[in-house]
Design a protein around this nucleic acid. Structure first.
Length: 596
RNA sequence: UGCCCGAUGGUGUAAUGGUAGCACAAACGACUCUGACUCGUUUUGUCUAGGUUCGAGUCCUAGUCGGGCAGCCA
């Protein structure tokens, strides 16, 4: 069983796809190439899933590719450990859906030079796309440092960039404010020769961090702050995770990103709304270099913000470091790792992320939509099993000890030809404590003194006696089994209102089951700026459960529905041979629990 | 009192000048050896004011509200 039934999502349509379709119709590009550019300084979360689904989805729909690129231009913040985790998470998310579009490059490859229209043109093509590529790695912005540097020299030569000696603080002051124009740097009109010399010496390591910078010469009075002579390069005497100590000057995002897109032949650079103000700069850099090939274009869309959780890197870190969450793969976290460990299939994440749509409207998506997507996928993916979370012993007094009645239990009721497995009915069984009520509320369908209920796949039982201990706690229920209501029996069709799940007390296995719930008690945990205050104290409840024997060989790649309870998966981290640990991914929808 | 972006039921999203639709949520009902699934029914919407037009959610103007922008972060 895999987790990929390829969620049949209707072909999405949105303003970005409209633009791409137009570009395809006008044959503006030879091939549609998008990119997903994470900075390797943290783990991917559900918010990133939306971007991934858009980037890969659009590539897939247009027989294009989506390059996975590490946006690693700031060595102070980035680490290799994250690179592997990010690659792993993405492969998981797109497996069986868009892996054929995953753009990776041959290990160690850097852009090659060719001459187009008499001018040098750099290009780095993907290895033949596909996640299965051996000896392939993601693209790295840091692989383009050489080309980026050469482009910067060109900009200087064209009088479009200059070396500025202003300190970071002075630079801020000169920049002005949104409602107040900035003023020109005193170094703005240096000669090309001087700029070239200074930039070379910056690169050679002659100046300390922050002493000088390379800036674009645009317009200090622009109403767009990002056009007020933005920095292109800063000095950082620090080793880089990918390039080592080869460089002590590092490009900034706005300069590196557009050119990285160009170098890879990206056509549509899709990002979130906060980069809208940067777009003119993205275009400025590209246009002022007079590059020979068709230029990429940036389009922005609104992020995914689900309720009852957080998708801010900073806040996620706080949850992990404070111990509110147990590591980045805590099943309560919205990280892709946490979600995966929780038992959510990638197809459900995709269904949710794609279903959220693509607009420029800042929205919040109800967590219930995610839950619905999870149930929708799991309903078809998960095999049914019987497990009792909070057991109460039932003695079927008319069944002799040692006797077993084999019953056929359905594995996959949603399939056209459901398969079954044998389970054994014995004299002693466990039922869910919630399924018995000594004083039943109105419309209670389950077991009550003197009442009848069907043990699913087995037979109808009648409760004759309730046995309690000295403290008044129920220790066992003594019932009679109507064996004529078993499959094949004369009264198999006899109806009772309730059907409950059960396991054989003598044959059942012990299992630890972790019952997860939403991490926060309120839809917008950080609305008042104090999300730690709204942690759900019941986000994890651990129980000692009894599960049917067939679960012995369960693996973490299998999805299960414990009937009438919810969807469960073996915990990939803590389960060991001989120690069953299950995570509850999500409960079944429960209209009964809500009504009273 | 700058520039940019946005506004359709409770939530999200369609309608590309021509019947405001879909999904989730909610409510009710049918079915049921899962109070699940499935199926059926129902409730709730174009930010405001003007204008263009035979006709405006859509185009124009103004306003209101929300968001982004003053990192040598991405």
């Amino acid at each position: 069983m895999t987790d990929d039934s390829n969620a049949a999502a209707p072909a999405p349509s949105d303003f970005i796809r409209d633009i791409v379709a137009q570009d395809v119709a006008q044959k503006r590009y030879a091939k549609i190439v998008t990119r997903f550019p994470p900075e390797p300084n943290g783990y991917l979360h559900i918010g990133h899933a939306k971007a991934i689904c858009i980037d890969f989805g659009i590539a897939k729909e247009n027989s294009g590719q989506c390059n996975l690129r590490m946006d690693d231009t700031n060595p102070a913040k980035e680490e290799v450990e994250y690179v592997d985790a990010i690659v792993d998470d993405i492969k998981w998310l797109i497996a069986g859906w868009a892996d054929q579009c995953l753009g990776l490059k041959p290990k160690g490859a850097t852009p090659s030079v060719q001459t187009i229209n008499g001018q040098p043109d750099y290009h780095l093509a993907a290895a033949s796309p596909g996640a299965g590529q051996a000896n392939a790695e993601p693209f790295f912005a840091s692989d383009y440092f050489e080309q980026l540097h050469s482009y910067a020299v060109t900009l200087i030569q064209r009088g479009k960039a200059y070396v500025c000696d202003l300190s970071p603080k002075e630079t801020d002051e000169y920049r002005g404010a949104p409602d107040r124009p900035g003023k020109d740097s005193p170094f703005r009109n240096r000669s090309v020769a001087e700029n070239l010399d200074l930039f070379a010496r910056m690169k050679a390591g002659e100046f300390p961090d922050g002493a000088r910078s390379l800036r674009a010469k645009i317009d200090m009075a622009s109403p767009n702050m990002w056009l007020r002579d933005p920095l292109l390069y800063r000095i950082r005497h620090i080793a880089h995770h990918h390039t080592g100590d080869a460089w002590c000057i590092y490009p900034l995002y706005d300069y590196a990103h557009c050119l990285s897109d160009y170098l890879e032949g990206v056509t549509h650079s899709l990002c979130s709304l906060e980069f809208t103000d940067h777009r003119p700069l993205y275009d400025w850099v590209l246009e002022n270099l007079s590059l020979p090939r068709p230029l990429p274009h940036q389009y922005e869309f609104s992020k995914l913000r689900p309720t009852y959780t957080l998708v801010s890197k900073r806040k996620l870190i706080q949850l992990v470091t404070s111990g509110a969450a147990d590591g980045w793969d805590d099943p309560r976290l919205p990280t892709l790792r946490g979600i995966r460990r929780r038992g959510v299939p990638a197809s459900a994440v995709r269904r949710f992320a794609i279903g959220a749509g693509v607009t420029k409207f800042i929205s919040t998506t109800e967590y219930a939509v995610f839950e619905h997507a999870i149930r929708e996928e799991l309903n078809t993916l998960a095999h049914r099993r019987l497990a009792v979370l909070k057991p109460v012993k039932v003695v079927l007094t008319n069944i002799p000890a040692g006797e077993k009645f084999e019953c056929a239990a359905t594995n996959d009721p949603q399939s056209e030809k459901p398969a079954t497995r044998p389970i054994q009915l014995t004299r002693e069984v466990f039922i869910e404590s919630d399924d018995f009520a000594e004083v039943p509320p109105p419309k209670y369908f389950r077991l009550k003194p003197g009442g009848e209920v069907r043990l699913k796949y087995a037979c109808i039982i009648k409760c004759d006696e309730v046995i309690k201990d000295g403290a008044g706690q129920i220790t066992e229920l003594r019932c009679t089994a109507d064996l004529s209501t078993r499959a094949g029996g004369p009264n198999v069709d006899r109806k009772v209102k309730g059907t409950i799940h059960w396991v054989s007390a003598t044959l059942a296995l012990d299992a630890e089951v972790r019952l997860y719930d939403r991490l926060f008690t309120v839809p917008e945990p950080d609305a008042d700026g104090d999300f730690m205050k709204h942690l759900n104290p019941h986000s994890l409840d651990v129980v000692k459960a009894k599960v049917e024997p067939s679960l012995e060989g369960a693996t973490s790649g299998q999805y299960f529905q414990f009937e009438r309870l919810g969807y469960f998966v073996l915990d990939a981290k803590d389960a060991k041979p001989g120690r069953l640990v299950f995570n509850r991914t999500i409960t079944l929808r429960d209209t009964w629990a809500k009504s009273p």
